[in-house]
Amino acid sequence: MSTLIVYCHPYEKSFNHAILSMVKTNLNKQKQHFQIIDLYAEHFNPVYDKEELRLYHEGKTHDPLVTKYLTMLQNSSSIIFITPLWWNSIPGMLKGFIDKVMKEGAGLSHTVSSLGIHGELTNIKHTYVLTTSTSPKFYLQFFCGNAIKRVFINHTLKQLGMKRRHWRHWLHFGGITFAKLSKRQKYLNYIANYRFK
């Protein structure tokens, strides 16, 4: 099994893209096999239409990328999300990825019972979330309800069965707009040497 990178940014000269490059360098250095889902480059449509919503309850889809992405998830042992935070949350593109790709049904991403949601993606043993934002991290944590950790990491990804979502696996670069080049480079060096297991 390999590591799956879910990358969510439309601009190739963004700092997020530099982070992606460093993650790839890191994994290559560790001789880890990986695959990349580049949501914007692959023109993933995050919007539900009527037919997609109808098929959802059958665990089906009419979007071939949804089938492809779910198969990649099922064949991965680790996952790394790389995304900006826009308006204090994940972008609509990444939210749409979660909405459309995570299909209900045995052997898919999760099952639902009267006791709640049971995650089926237990094959993913290590989960990492790499984010950037204009706001500093303390603002997200203490003034915005810490939604990335409390909702996305501790609940959404947990409900899907993804393991090892420890708070240390959320790596955030805040204050990106006014960050000096030296600070950006220091962070990239940190990512280049981070131990993704």
Rank of each mutant, 00 (worst) to 15 (best):
L4H: 00
V6S: 01
V6M: 10
V6K: 03
Y11H: 12
K13I: 11
I19Y: 12
I19H: 05
H33T: 04
H33N: 11
D38S: 07
A41P: 01
F44I: 07
N45H: 06
E51W: 00
L55N: 05
L55A: 12
L55T: 06
H57N: 14
H57Q: 15
E58P: 04
E58R: 12
H62P: 06
P64F: 11
N75Y: 06
S76K: 00
S78I: 02
I82Y: 11
W86C: 04
W87N: 13
P91D: 06
K95C: 11
D99E: 03
K100S: 13
K100F: 06
K103Y: 12
V112M: 06
I117V: 12
I117F: 10
H118F: 13
G119F: 03
H126C: 05
T134N: 10
S135T: 14
Y139L: 12
Y139G: 01
C144H: 10
G145V: 12
V151N: 03
F152G: 00
N154Q: 03
H155I: 13
K158R: 13
L160D: 09
M162I: 10
M162E: 01
R164W: 15
R165W: 06
H169Q: 13
L171M: 06
F173R: 07
G174Q: 08
I176A: 08
T177N: 09
L181P: 01
K186Q: 13
I191M: 04
N193H: 09
F196K: 00
